[in-house]
């Protein structure tokens, strides 16, 4: 009688379990047999109390065997169903990985800021402080103190915007040299980036652009030091193996004055379109600070000497990034800005 019941339960489980497909259904099915209160196998256990004492051990073993078998059976099926379910879930969740990502759009720094940043990093490592002067400058600082008195022909080199008789839009960041030297005694190493203005507006000139001025004043500073420093600068900004070439030029506030060319980084100096076949690219002007400039700032030119250099930030940016139109730098076209994210 009891044996029949056990066989029936076994058969019921065997018969139905394979048709179950969801783990929730399996759970319910399992509960219908193993639930402590209402489970069919638990009921069998409870029915044992009505059996004669001597039959109890044998029957108890049978029920226990059944229980063990059932648990194994349920566990086995549970594994199978879980695996199937996971497979289905993964299938359902599969995505088109080529669809666009969700991103936080980032903006770009202006190429001038990037170049100035790079220059500052290079020169800060050599001990240069950063000084930023004002855009509106006194005629004295922009010209006179830089050995360019009124009606000096060198003033014709730069078309100046005046805002009053004595004030102008600075034409060169060199104006900062004087402010620094008036307030600081050697050793001086400063880098002065900023906007400058010239009354020139055509395809290749912008009435506003940026310059970066550098000044070193100390004992025994020489032209050889200038070239050594510029060699390091050129390699860092344009790449390994770039060389510099000095050639004579003229600026009122330096003497000797030089134009500094770097070997063409596009062709390695063989001559190409970028360097107009010369193998060299003009990047900056420099020279030994003119003694009168030091005197104007109360620095004894017999004790100290110095060099100064100045470069066009946009020119460096245009060379570095291959920008072909200076005007594009001041237009904020989204298609321009997009290219400078980094």
């Amino acid at each position: 009688m009891m044996e029949d019941k056990i066989a029936a339960i076994r058969a019921e489980i065997e018969e139905n379990i394979s048709s179950l497909e969801l783990s929730a259904a399996l759970y319910e099915f399992r509960k219908s047999f193993l639930d402590n209160k209402d489970g069919k196998i638990s009921q069998l256990m409870k029915g044992m109390k009505d059996l004669p004492k001597e039959e109890k051990p044998a029957f108890g073993k049978l029920v226990n065997d059944l229980k063990t078998w059932a648990i194994d059976k349920f566990d086995e099926y549970n594994e199978k169903i879980k695996a199937k379910e996971l497979e289905q879930k993964n299938k359902d969740e599969a995505i088109d990985v080529t669809m666009p990502g969700v991103k936080n759009e980032v903006g770009a720094l202006h190429p001038d800021t990037m170049v100035i940043g790079e220059l500052i990093d290079i020169f800060a490592g050599m001990g240069f402080e950063i000084y930023e002067g004002s855009e509106i400058e006194n005629d004295y600082y922009n010209f006179t103190a830089l050995n360019t008195p009124k009606d000096h022909p060198a003033r014709d080199m730069q078309d100046t915007f005046y805002v009053s008789d004595d004030f102008l839009l600075r034409t060169q960041t060199s104006a900062g040299q004087i402010h620094v030297m008036e307030n600081k005694k050697p050793p001086i190493k400063i880098l002065s980036p900023g906007k400058v203005f010239r009354s020139d507006d055509d395809a290749t000139h912008s009435p506003m652009f940026s310059q970066m001025e550098g000044l070193v004043v100390d004992r025994d500073i020489s032209l050889a030091d200038l070239q050594g420093m510029l060699d390091t600068f050129s390699e860092r900004i344009f790449g390994e193996g770039i060389k510099t070439r000095l050639r004579p030029s003229y600026f009122p506030f330096t003497e000797p004055s030089v134009e500094v060319d770097v070997s063409c980084f596009a062709c390695g100096g063989k001559g190409c379109k970028l360097c107009k076949g010369t193998g060299w690219i003009e990047v900056l002007g420099a020279g030994i600070v003119n003694r009168h400039v030091l005197e104007n700032c109360g620095i004894d030119p017999d004790v100290y000497s110095g060099f100064a250099f100045g470069m066009g930030v946009e020119r460096i940016a245009m060379l570095k990034y291959g920008i072909n139109n200076i005007k594009a730098l001041f237009e904020s076209d989204t298609r321009f800005a997009e290219q400078f994210k980094n």
């Binding site: 800060a124 050599m126 001990g127 070193v216 050594g228 000095l246 050639r247 004579p248």
Partner: peptide, 26 residues
């Protein structure tokens, strides 16, 4: 003298006499 003698005669040095200074952005 140097423009006549030639700038290519200059042998670059790296601020060999200059004092050490602290640099960087403020």
């Amino acid at each position: 003298v140097i423009r006549s003698y030639g700038y290519h005669h200059i042998v670059p040095t790296f601020l060999k006499e200059a004092s050490v200074t602290a640099g960087g952005r403020n």
